[in-house]
Write a protein that binds this DNA or RNA. Structure first.
Lengths: 337, 337
DNA sequence: ATCGATGCCGGCATCGATTGCGCATTTTTT
DNA sequence: AAAAAATGCGCAATCGATGCCGGCATCGAT
């Protein structure tokens, strides 16, 4: 069937040994200019490409990095992936993308799959459901380079890239307060995620500084990250049907933001009275109705940084001792009213 | 660094040969139950996983399939990828995703990259810029299985999956006519794409059947598929500033649809007088303002079908002679007015 | 008792590319 | 002119897993 030319074919055709061909093809300090020219020309002619799989076996590495995200349909992640790819390609690495759909089982399967010597390192943003991290810790202990981005595992000693979630949440909440809102609800992601805790702290701190009491009934978590629309819908409808309903909602993530708006449009007759601000990297935000004030994360840059860090670990000669945590700033985009 | 246990390590530890261990690990009809048990237990204990790279080298295949799309941020493609993955995983294949960003150069690089014996087959949706298909034809001639979906290359003799673009376009245009529109513009994708031609035919046929003259000035192509927002903006602004401007726009693809709406919101003071209908698989469509009537493609199913077809070619013992072209129906979702 | 049949397992080559070592020549040095 | 150095290239091992072939023992049959 599909059978590309190998170094052996060239050797046979040119009546040389495979070693000579191999050396002629790369550097080749020990090969005469003449032979080198013959080999290179012939290789070009038969469109020779070295077999990366054979190389991986020999070199015990694959020049590819694995990316674990909840889903590529999420614009934050697709932008981050663009950043990852731009760095990876420029350094000669493949990128293999794997989606967890915020499921713990899928995360375990995908991580094991990728780790098994087919990637040189892993870029991970945790699934919303994940509470047990042993699948990652085991691999990391065995020496597989791992860098976290966005949804971080604080307890693991490695590089991490995140955005300033506390500040982003704080600014968004303060913006809602500045618009006169007094009862601000918080629609949050799964409680075990790093981003959830950080964003909730920012939200609470803003309320505190403006002397607005924190009402636990106005904070709801989506433990599957809004994997099913219904999960978001239930939470938002509880807000809406509250005896003393909120006059604003601060939403902690992309998927939840749009889910929240859909629900409001569907069920709230008076939805223009409720301001919504949330994290979103969607390019369609400005076209939404009800409108959404949004906090944007520098997804592309986060991807770039994470990929650079991972590749630096992979290519480091010695075990890394000192690990970095990078935090990038978000931007607030007010909208509506 | 990262060094997983190999079959050799097990052999040494158990004082057996590698062949025995190998056979004990899989079926092993020639190995005594006793040795088999010892090997399996030890393998389990040291968490042995066979090295897929070594296997790929030996078997001359990788159990992975490559997917070439313009970008994963596009919901149509991310949904198609979900379909592809669901089939691929269930049959034991990896999925490697590669983005062209509608650039011809990137397509060539990515295709070559994947083809080089690291994938067993390719699932391709052409880039908007691509006019020369030799990079794909060469590989196909060499025997690499290729299946097209969505953006098809008609001249290549292989399986193809598309949606009924003609019918979808026809219905959307007819819908606009039924709403009383008389001057319906068409914002199209790159002219060499299969979907562009099919959708344009549907549009023109609807006009013809309703005795509306076809005005070539009301048809504009985006030859980079709307890779840059500015490309769409220029086209739409030309529509808007026309002496006799359109009262509706039929848009041929997802990215163009949203780009069109943005531009209208930005520049058209009277944008509510212009109806817009277009292809879109975005989950946010219902929340858009200006509103959009949309044609939805069965992206997930298209991905499933394409993956099934590709895997059937890969696993077929004999060269396939008869190729299929599958066409799935779209659905129209009217909105606004 | 000898031969054949089986059961169980090890040796070796293989997939494609790389590389240390070593063997020829040729060129340079003394 | 003889010794030393340099040049150009081939042999064989290696990476991990597999599978053909062949060896050795045990058993039953003739």
């Amino acid at each position: 069937m599909f059978k590309p030319t190998t170094i052996k074919d060239i050797a046979k055709a040119l009546n040389l040994s495979t070693s000579t061909v191999s050396r002629a093809l790369r550097g080749g300090y020990e090969i005469s200019e003449e032979t080198k020219k013959i080999v290179l020309e012939y290789a070009e002619k038969v469109n020779f490409k070295r077999n990366p799989i054979a190389l991986s076996l020999k070199e015990r590495r694959s020049y590819s990095i694995g990316v674990i995200v909840c889903e590529v349909a999420n614009q934050f992640f697709s932008q981050a992936i663009d950043g990852i790819e731009s760095v990876a390609y420029s350094k000669g690495y493949h990128v293999i993308i794997s989606q967890t759909h915020d499921s713990y089982e899928r995360e375990v399967i995908n991580v094991e799959h990728l780790a098994n010597r087919s990637v040189d390192g892993l870029l991970v943003s945790l699934s919303a459901e994940t509470k047990d991290y042993s699948h990652l810790e085991k691999l990391h202990d065995q020496g597989l380079p791992i860098v976290f981005f966005d949804r971080i595992l604080n307890s693991m000693n490695t590089h991490k890239v995140s955005s300033n979630n506390f500040k982003g949440a704080f600014e968004a909440t303060e913006f809602l307060i500045s618009k006169g809102c007094k009862r601000i609800a918080h629609l949050a992601n799964a409680s075990q995620l790093s981003i959830t805790a950080e964003r909730q702290k920012g939200y609470e701190e803003a309320l505190r500084q403006h002397h607005i009491p924190i009402d636990k009934e106005l904070i709801k978590y989506c433990k599957h990250g809004g994997r099913d629309q219904i999960e978001v819908e239930i939470a938002v409808r509880e807000f809406l049907s509250h005896d003393n309903p909120p006059d604003a909602i601060f939403v902690a993530s992309d998927r939840l933001s749009t889910g929240c708006l859909s629900t409001m449009k569907k069920y709230a007759t008076h939805h223009h009275d409720i301001l919504v601000a949330g994290f979103s990297n969607s390019e369609l935000v400005e076209l939404l109705n009800p409108s959404l004030s949004y906090i944007r994360q520098p997804a592309f840059e986060m991807g770039e940084k994470a990929a650079e860090m991972l590749i630096s670990i992979i290519e480091s000669k010695y075990p890394i001792e000192e690990f970095e945590s990078i935090m990038l700033d978000t931007t607030l985009h007010p909208n509506g009213v």
